[in-house]
Write a protein that binds this DNA or RNA. Structure first.
Lengths: 137, 137
DNA sequence: TTACAAAACGTAACGATTACGGTATTATAA
DNA sequence: TTATAATACCGTAATCGTTACGTTTTGTAA
C-alpha cells in the first residue's frame, strides 16, 4: 500500500483526505515497520501542536478498518504498520526499531488436519528479535 | 504441571506456599485453558473477600517466572494457563471459553534460513477459533 | 515460641485507550 | 464560489488493565 492508493481508497469509501490524514500516511510510509499510537502522536505534534488523542486513535482504527494499516499487539500496546497484503504472509519484528521483514512461511496448512472439529477463525505467527542493522549498534 | 509439582517447585525456590497461592493453583488446574487476572480475582473473592490486586498480579508474575504458568496476550489483556512445557509446542485457543489444544507443528525450522542475519529472540504462533464444545452452544 | 523474611492489604498512581459534546473543516453540488 | 451537510477535530474526562507503595500480617525454621 502506497500513499496514493491509500488516499484513493479513502475517497472511494467516502472519507475525507485531510492534512492530518495525509501526514499519518507519510509517517507510516517512512516508518517501514510497526509503530505505536504514542510514536505517531509525537510525530504529529511537530506539525499539529496539541493534536487530540481522539483524532489519532480514530484514524488508526479507521485505517485498520479499510485496510490501509495492519496491526498487532505487543507488550500491552497496539502497533500499526502499512498494510502490504498482496498475499498472505507473516513478519519478523525487530525488538529495537520495530522494522519488519516478510516471512512467506505459513504453518496453517499443516495445522488444519490436527484441528478437524475446530472452527478456525484466525491465527498469529510472529518472530521477534534484532534486525541486522540493530545488531551493529 | 500439576499442583503437587508446583508446590514442590515453589518451596525449592524458597517461596512460601500460602493458602491463596494454593487456591490459585487449584483454579488454573480446573480451568484447563487461558484465564485473565480479572477471572482469577473474581474466583478468589469467593474465598478471600477483598483480596488485593497486588497479591493477584504478584503471584501471577511469580508463577510465570518460575514456570508454573505460561502466558499470552490477547485483546489488551494478559492471559495465563498452567504450563505444560515438557516439549516445545503451540496452542489453539478458543475465543469463547479460553480452553486450549496443543499443536505440535512449529514453523521455526523452516524460518531460520530465511532470517540468516537476524538474531531471533522469540516467536509466537497461536490459532484462534471455537472449540468443538463451544460450536454446539 | 519467637524472630524475621516473605506475603498480603488497601489504596493510589500509571499508561494506553476510549468516549463526549461542542466546534471547525472539508467535499461536493448548486 | 458559496452554501450546506457530513465528516473530522478539539479538549478533556473517564475507563481499563496493570503496577507501585508503606504498613500490617503471616509462614517457616531456629
Amino acid at each position: 500500500m502506497n500513499i496514493e492508493d491509500a488516499i484513493k481508497l479513502l475517497k472511494e469509501k467516502g472519507y475525507k483526505a485531510t492534512g492530518k490524514r495525509k501526514e499519518i500516511l507519510v509517517y507510516f510510509e517512512d516508518a517501514d515497520g510497526y509503530r505505536s499510537a504514542k510514536d505517531l502522536i509525537q510525530h504529529l505534534e511537530l506539525s499539529y501542536e496539541g493534536i487530540s488523542f481522539d483524532t489519532v486513535y480514530r484514524n488508526l482504527y479507521l485505517y485498520n478498518e479499510v485496510g490501509i494499516l495492519e496491526t498487532t499487539e505487543l507488550n500491552g500496546e497496539r502497533l500499526f504498520r502499512m498494510n502490504c497484503s498482496r498475499h498472505h504472509h507473516h513478519h519478523f519484528i525487530c525488538n529495537d526499531c520495530g522494522k519488519t521483514k516478510e516471512i512467506s512461511v505459513c504453518p496453517m496448512d499443516e495445522v488444519h488436519h490436527a484441528l478437524a472439529n475446530y472452527a478456525i477463525e484466525g491465527h498469529k505467527f510472529e518472530i521477534y528479535g534484532r534486525c541486522p542493522g540493530c545488531q551493529l549498534a
